[in-house]
């Protein structure tokens, strides 16, 4: 029973995948809720303090090495940290849902020799850096899409890039190394080979002295390339109202007048009626 393979199952996502999913989700969520309570000094986009105990999700993904485990990280954050605490921001959460799993999964595949400490440190760092870097670019892009006449205000674009860049460096130093690489170096060897049998799975053996280059998975890299624009769109739609903001500019209002507002209202009313009709019919 305890050594059954991970494939034989009646669950659509696999029994062991479900177990690993629940495990990673619960721990990520708990970690999220705990660090939410810890004091944090945040100054606008700059956050100084305990961001997150990222070593917990990353180490667990390195142990289970499945896409499902990686997907459980943002789901855990959404379910425990956002929905339960009422902070859910709808589409904004989709950004993490696209970005985090692909970055972590890509990094987890790089780990080829579980006993090589240097490799472990690099992998944890890459996971965090990749995710944080893409998120920073998305953040900068969002402000560009959102604030009309951004370029017209002297100094504003530069200051946004400066702030986000400094934030990235601070995050990498505190969260990436302090709460990522260093604790992960302790935790991974302690859990490796112990936690997998508890779920009835084989621990990852790897190959002694294998180089990280062998772990560059084409599929995982493609997934990162694919997820990045999707995450950007989700983030942009959530924070800047998507296409509305591009069309609905003050110049447009000056031409057509504020009365033109009736058009989107009628359109949304029609959409609402259609959705309502479909929902009531299917229920």
């Amino acid at each position: 029973m305890s050594t059954s393979s991970a494939t034989g199952s009646r669950f659509s996502i696999g029994k062991h995948n479900m177990m690993a999913f629940i495990l990673v989700m619960s721990l990520t969520g708990l970690q999220n809720a705990v660090t939410e309570i810890l004091p944090e000094f945040s100054l606008g986009p700059l956050e100084i303090g305990v961001g997150e105990f990222v070593f917990i999700p990353i180490v667990l993904i390195l142990l289970f090495r499945t896409y499902w485990a990686a997907l459980a990280v943002p789901v855990g954050e959404i379910v425990f940290g956002e929905i339960l605490l009422g902070e859910f921001d709808g589409l904004g959460a989709m950004e993490g849902l696209f970005l985090i799993p692909v970055c972590y999964y890509f990094a987890a595949k790089l780990l080829q020799d579980p006993e090589n400490t240097t490799q472990l440190a690099i992998v944890v760092f890459v996971a965090e850096a990749l995710e944080e870097f893409l998120a920073t670019i998305i953040d900068i892009g969002k402000v560009y899409v959102g604030v009309e006449e951004l370029e017209a205000v002297a100094g504003l674009p530069e200051s946004i890039i400066v702030l986000e860049g400094v934030d990235f460096l601070v995050q990498m130093a505190i969260t990436g190394i302090g709460f990522g690489v260093i604790p992960a170096l302790y935790l991974y060897p302690k859990l490796h080979g112990k936690i997998e049998p508890l779920l009835g799975m084989e621990p990852f053996q790897g190959r002694r002295g294998a180089s990280m280059a062998g772990g560059v998975s084409i599929k995982a890299s493609l997934a990162v390339l694919l997820a990045f624009p999707l995450a950007f769109v989700a983030g942009a739609v959530s924070e800047v109202g998507g296409a509305i903001n591009v069309v609905w500019e003050p110049e447009f209002l000056a031409v057509y007048g504020q009365h033109f507002i009736a058009v989107p209202i009628v359109v949304s009313a029609v959409i609402a009626i259609i959705v309502w009709y479909r929902v009531t019919r299917s229920a």
């Binding site: 100054l43 606008g44 986009p45 002297a154 100094g155 504003l156 200051s159 400066v162 702030l163």
Partner: peptide, 13 residues
């Protein structure tokens, strides 16, 4: 808002 204001104080208005 405050942090953007502080940083823009150096780079612009």
């Amino acid at each position: 808002l405050v942090s953007y204001a502080i940083v823009t104080a150096f780079t612009g208005d």
